[in-house]
Amino acid sequence: MPEIVDNFKNALLSSDEEGASAILDQYLLKHTPLQFVEEIVVKTLDDIGSGWENGDYALSQVYMSGRICEALLDRALPDQSGQRWHKPKMAIALLSDYHSLGKKIVYSVMRAGGFQLVDYGRVEVEELVARVTEDRLEVIMISVLMLSSALQVKEVVRRLSPRSDNLKIVVGGAPFRLDRQLWQEVGADAVGYTASDALHIASSLQGGKADE
């Protein structure tokens, strides 16, 4: 098994879409797509994410890996397959910021990890609060790059706290990486320093598959 993880990781790091696809096809001869997610994809993206965190890999590799995995899993686990995880009910948003790469990476990684989530795109506080409330979310993932945007999370928390007991607010982005206390200062419930951290946070809050 480690050999296939290594091969898959090398294909992703060198942005070899065909190589990664061939590994998936080979694997599916004897296993299910969800096994591929759990045994190969999550481990690999985890490794690449922590490699970025400690300086071994680059953001472009994280991005391309996420995109390739997302495309592979869209093929192997289409939305209508009923095999994706619909819980916790969650969405991702770029808050009051115009730097969308981080959100796109996390979205891809979450999709590649077999999760269903809504992409709110770029939103201001008002719209985010309204949509989270209306959609009765269990998890909202907020991505930012600018410090001023990160500080806006405080207002989101203040306005959502009274009405959403079961909501978890997860934050990520450069200001939170540079100041490891900032996520607590803005009142978030959790922080992700890498895209695959988001997978683990969602998994820990998971109540099971919607179709189960």
Binding site: L13, L59, S60
Partner: peptide, 9 residues
């Protein structure tokens, strides 16, 4: 920066 793209690239 190697934070953004690998050195080879």
């Amino acid at each position: 920066s190697p934070t953004i793209i690998p050195r080879e690239l």
